[in-house]
Nucleic acid binder design. Structure first.
Length: 883
RNA sequence: GGGCGCGUAGCUCAGCGGGAGAGCACUCGCUUCACACGCGAGGGGUCGCAGGUUCAAUCCCUGCCGCGCCCACCA
């Protein structure tokens, strides 16, 4: 017998272990079934499970479990990402606690240290994924730094280099002065600040007392100025074009050039040009052949290219110093507030410097072409569709991708330098050596490039590298392209776009047919969760309190397309209640000996109520499958919930009670079998959302059956809803509802008799009443109505039975006639209003001429229904008046 | 500056050209033999504002107001 309450903690651990040990999550590359593949976005190896993970992995698991049960060979490819900078920072913090730096250890020892850390602590996130009930094929778990994936990275690098799509270049990059590495544009976070705009006077050469005024937000970089630019059409400055001014402090003459970049509307209309420290100025410098003077070192302190007094100063200290000196010299014209955005490193949190360095770049523009086309042509579709715009926008304006990082943890760039600086790019050192030998005609010493690759470089290969590429293994052919990528919009650029580019380039086909973009999980007030705000909800905490199934169901139910998700504990609580409800319903079934009957034929049942529920549950299954096919997780969850609670528990089980207790043994047996069968279907449909409780019930309700629910196929039944049974049950449900409503409104004391009279066409009604004898008895019991004759049932108060066998029961003495009169009058008025609305529509010529016939028909039906209801109530009202 | 999304019941959100919905919260009544994490019955909305298209607009179009997000080389 089932326990009185469901205990998630024990059940979850037990079933997860069994599933994993029995290989229930494993894909089967030799299977004849159609494959269904999802690539798990690899969480950072440093990560621990947060709400965003919980959402994305729940949705993926719902899809995987669902398709697995639909008989597909489901592969959910798991793994973790080496997360270059993040991981390096974690280990560096450890070292810091020991009072050493990575430089004390040296590169090799440091990397060994990171691997040790990974072995010891890198499993947190995958352990937590198990607690979430995720069912990926753990046997295929990969790590972006493992040998196979590293091999893929090297091959891709070498191939792209050979194709001219990876190159080395000296350019301005985003330099992180704290982490001492270049970062990509995407890793730069723009923050709104109110800065200042300083107006400086630069003295004109050879004209004592004359100046050109420039405005700048970065006084400290003026020491690297190599020109002042004005707009070619700016009348104020025409006479100065081609002349020179003296850069104060540095005391260098610099030219005044004409360039359209100078905006006459901004600042003074004259702008100082610092090509080595500003992306715009870099371009201007190129156009005019200006010198590039780098004035910063890797810590963003001023270097030896500046006057001695400034050397070694931090950039912000130098800023104050420059401003002070300019003021002292009478060259500071004014200072204005200036709202602006300042670039910060998303990892380090410090201001990023544009800095001139040698870096490796990917020609993203070339790779983006086919990736753009694939989406335009619909070979890959985004869900919801509007994210395609975001993708297009970025792809069409894509910039070269800086892929080298000056850190240690990551895939080291497979490039070697010869003594003369010649670069040999090769997959192995041996190949590089061979190439060097061919080039230099003699053995030479090679030095390997010290940089590592951007973490996203290796994750861009994830959809095929994890399958074993570049080896010609069957997995690559079978599981690529994958069916759907499930991820958040925040990494469309970082990851999705790059997978599209690499996948198409190397595999010749898109990596996924669909990309489902889910929203962010926010707190219940709509705020982004963050540690600093202290509004982080820990999914594991929720799982401890409410059970994993409740958390999963909540996330699925909240995952409406295109909207952020506000996580509230009340919601989780509500779905915990749902699991309790399911548990109790199952208990009820068990107490009434509803056990699955082998060979039960759902299309052979005779009782109306059973025919009805079978149609309903199959319909529910179909609708859930449809919703999931459209990635409408919220609809799918809602459909499950409404059926299980609102239809099965609230109605079917209530109708079943008198049958279980009734004299008709055949009906009882059929209803028991049906109940068990329907419950099985519910468990099946619900399993992807609530895997644990459903598995537990599956096992306990029929311990002797073979196989676990997770491996049970979800059979398609040809049966559809039985319209006759449906109509009849609708009738009964309406009947019962009306009775309840009257009872409640009239304040009928418990136990009091309610005279319930029925109006209906006599012949059909009588027939129905016979059919529903048992249901009527239930009703009578439930509502404590007294039914004098089983043929004489039940309808809202003050109703009249028409036909030959009319029985009229007295109303007086049980209900308040005045109140009932008022109620009826109110309802009649409401109906009249509705009727008038419809009449107006039907009387409208335009409507009659232009509305589709089925709409007109629908409106006529509506009118008829309303009118019939009104007449019924009116008759009841006149009866009361007569009493 | 460019782009995207959102304003529907007290709250969180579905719906999206022809009858305003769900969950939670609220009110009332129930220790009914699965379940008080429950059962039953209710109250509550000019569907942001203003125009337009249409026989018909919460739904389509335009503008405005408010909120959120993304991108950008905004001296």
């Amino acid at each position: 017998m089932l326990d009185k309450t469901y205990r998630p903690a024990e059940v979850e651990a037990k079933h997860y272990r069994r599933w994993e040990e029995s290989g229930a999550f494993a894909a089967d590359v030799r299977s004849s079934a159609k494959p269904y593949t999802i690539m798990m976005p690899p969480p950072n190896v440093t990560g621990s499970l947060h709400m965003g993970h919980a959402l994305t992995f729940t949705l993926q698991d719902v899809l995987i479990r669902h398709h697995r049960m639909r008989g597909l060979d489901a592969l959910w490819q798991p793994g973790t990402d080496h997360a270059g900078i993040a991981t390096q920072m974690v280990v560096e913090r450890q070292l810091e606690a020991e009072g050493i730096t990575r430089h004390d250890l040296g590169r090799d020892d440091f990397i060994r240290r990171v691997w040790t850390w990974k072995e010891e602590s890198g499993g947190t996130i995958t352990r937590q994924l198990r607690r979430l009930g995720a069912s990926p094929d753990w046997g295929r778990e990969r790590f972006t730094m493992d040998e196979g994936l590293s091999r893929a990275v090297r091959k891709v690098f070498v191939d792209l280099h050979r194709q001219g799509l990876i190159y080395r270049d000296k350019r301005l990059v985003n330099w992180d002065p704290r982490l001492h590495t270049a970062i990509s544009d995407l890793e730069v976070e723009q923050r709104e600040v109110t800065g200042s705009l300083w107006y400086f006077r630069y003295p004109l050469e050879g004209e004592e007392g004359a100046f050109i005024t420039v405005a700048t937000t970065r006084p400290e970089t003026m020491l690297g100025d190599t020109a002042v630019a004005v707009h070619p059409d700016d009348e104020r400055y025409q006479h100065l074009i081609g002349r020179r001014c003296i850069l104060p402090i540095a005391e260098r003459p610099i030219p005044i050039v004409a360039d359209a970049y100078a905006d006459p509307e901004k600042g003074s209309g004259a702008v100082k040009i610092t090509p080595a420290h500003d992306f715009n100025d870099f371009e201007v410098g190129r156009r005019h052949g200006l010198a590039m003077i780098n004035v910063l070192d890797r810590d963003a302190r001023l270097n030896d290219a500046v006057p001695e007094a400034y050397r070694g100063l931090d950039r912000f200290v130098a800023r104050d110093r420059v401003v002070a000196e300019m003021e002292a010299r009478g060259l500071l014209e004014k200072i204005a507030d200036n709202p602006m955005t300042v670039p910060y490193g998303d990892r380090s949190g410090v201001v990023i410097e544009p800095w001139l360095t040698d870096q490796w770049f990917v020609d993203a523009r070339t790779l983006a072409g086919p990736a753009l086309k694939a989406v335009e042509e619909g070979r890959t579709v985004f869900v919801p569709r509007h994210w395609e715009n975001t993708y297009y926008e970025w792809m069409r304006n894509i910039q070269p991708w800086c892929i080298s990082r000056q850190i240690w943890w990551g895939h080291q760039v497979p490039a070697w330098y010869g003594p003369d600086g010649t670069i040999f790019v090769a997959e192995t050192e041996e190949e590089a050596m061979a190439a060097a030998l061919a080039h230099h005609k003699q053995p030479v010493e090679l030095v390997r490039d010290q940089d590592v690759l951007d973490t996203w470089f290796s994750s861009a290969l994830w959809p095929f590298s994890t399958l074993g590429w570049p080896e010609a293994v069957p997995e690559v052919a079978r599981y690529y392209p994958t069916d759907v990528l499930v991820t958040g919009f925040d990494i469309i650029f970082f990851w999705v776009a790059r997978m599209m580019m690499m996948g198409i380039h190397f595999m010749g086909e898109v990596p996924f047919r669909a990309i489902y973009i889910h929203a962010l999980v926010r707190d219940e007030r709509g705020q982004k969760m963050s540690k600093s705000k202290g509004n982080v909800i820990d999914p594991l905490g929720l799982i401890d309190t409410y059970g994993c199934d409740a958390v999963r169901f909540t996330l699925a139910a909240l995952a409406a397309p295109g909207r952020d998700i506000r996580m509230s504990e009340a919601r989780v609580q509500g779905y915990r209640n749902f699991s309790t409800k399911l548990w109790n319903a199952a208990r009820f079934c068990q107490m009434n000996e509803c056990a699955p009957v082998p060979g039960f034929a759902p299309d052979a049942v005779r009782e109306t109520v059973n025919r009805w529920i079978i149609g309903k549950v199959l319909d529910t299954g179909r609708r859930v499958a449809e919703a999931l096919a459209a990635y409408r997780f919220n609809d799918a969850a809602q459909i499950c919930h409404a059926f299980t609670w609102g239809t099965f528990c609230d109605w079917y089980l209530e109708f079943a009670k008198p049958i279980f207790g009734g004299a008709d043994a055949d009906a009882g047996a059929e209803t028991r079998a049906t109940t068990a069968w329907v419950l099985d279907r519910i468990l099946t449909i619900l399993h992807p959302f609530m895997p644990f409780i459903t598995e537990e019930l599956w096992e306990q309700l029929s311990p002797q059956r073979d196989g676990r629910l997770i491996e049970t196929a979800w059979p398609d039944f040809a049966i559809t809803a039985d319209p006759e049974a449906e109509a009849e049950m609708d009738w009964v449900v309406t009947l019962v509802s009306e009775v309840r409503s009257v009872r409640s409104e009239m304040n009928v004391p418990p136990g009091a008799r309610i005279p319930l009279l029925l109006k209906g066409a006599s012949a059909t009604t009588a027939a129905r009443l016979k059919t529903y004898r048992d249901l009527v008895v239930t009703l009578a019991r439930l509502e404590r109505a007294e039914v004098a004759d089983a043929d004489t049932v039940v309808k809202g108060a003050a109703q009249v039975v028409v036909g030959e066998a009319t029985v009229v029961l007295p109303l007086a003495g049980v209900i308040d006639l005045a109140q009932e009169k008022a109620r009826l009058t109110r309802e009649i008025q409401k109906l009249e209003g509705e009727i008038a609305k419809v009449d107006k529509k039907l009387g409208n010529e335009g409507f009659m001429a232009k509305a589709p016939p089925e709409v007109v028909e629908e409106q006529r039906d509506r009118r008829a229904d309303h009118a019939a209801a009104r007449d019924r109530l009116a008759q009841a009202l006149s009866r009361i008046a007569a009493e």
